[in-house]
Design a protein around this nucleic acid. Structure first.
Lengths: 144, 144
DNA sequence: CTGATTTCAGCTATACTGACATTT
DNA sequence: CAAATGTCAGTACAGCTGAAATCA
């Protein structure tokens, strides 16, 4: 059975990026779904844990998502007790979002899950190869 | 303005794969939309040009798409004159799809467009880096 | 008043599921 | 009859758009 991808597509690096990236995305999403979460939930928790309190439009800008979606996802995170909302006293238009203690412990678990998924996807590569790949991708990422 | 991605996410290679891949996918899709096409149209044309006639379920399997979607996309390609359908005389359940001359010339144009998008995305990398990246991704791709 | 921020309601495209007809 | 193939209708969800409400 010949089920290989078309050579003229696999010759395109961006095609490989697209398909491998889609697979990674899908497996992470499946993993998160087991805990009733989606990719944006983890991304927002990570941003809050890394950088501290954000207004919602800052979260949207940092993560490349739409502010309308940010509102929904933060809403769900708040309902689960993972984040807290408070009006910014200095500018009452803004809603400051902070991560709770429960949010941090949950994020740690999600990160461990993500590492497992990554281990699965990067399995064909040696440690040195993985390091090389990561640095190349990082340069592309910052170049976006 | 601090609009950088969260470090704990960019530390994940699969996160970088996901976001860079999504960007690549989006730019290719935008490019194809200018010609009234989508990613699946090009993928199917490429598969037909590379390997020859396919039954629709073979196309679906090779490209990782659903047979029901294959039917729709092939329908659109046939309406545009890019592919031709014929019943397989040896097994009249199957519909053999072949690429037409117009399909081949169109595919050549799409491939040129794709090369331009790739050049844009891989801009931060040297030729040697691109080669390294491509081989690493190819190993991940075949490992999926 | 203009602009920034948040929220809500809805639209669209894609991925997917299930039912059905045809043929082996 | 059971399995394979293709077609069609419809569902679910992510991504996106637009408008209203609040506040600087």
């Amino acid at each position: 059975m010949s089920t290989t991808s078309p050579p003229s597509l696999t010759a395109l690096t961006t095609y490989l990026l697209s398909t491998v990236g889609k697979a990674a995305r899908g497996r992470h999403a499946a993993q998160l779904a087991d805990r009733g979460m989606r990719l944006w939930h983890m991304a927002i928790l990570a941003a809050l844990a890394d950088v501290g309190a954000h207004a919602q439009h800052q979260l949207a800008e940092r993560l490349g998502m739409h502010v309308s979606d940010t509102a929904k996802v933060v809403d769900e995170l708040e309902r689960g007790g993972y984040v807290a909302r408070e009006r910014n006293p200095a500018d009452r238009r803004q809603v400051l979002v902070t991560v709770t203690a429960e949010g941090r412990t949950t994020l740690a678990a999600l990160t461990a899950d993500a590492a497992a998924v990554q281990e699965d996807i990067l399995a064909p590569l040696t440690a040195r190869d993985r390091d090389t790949l990561h640095r190349l991708l990082l340069r592309l990422h910052t170049g976006l």
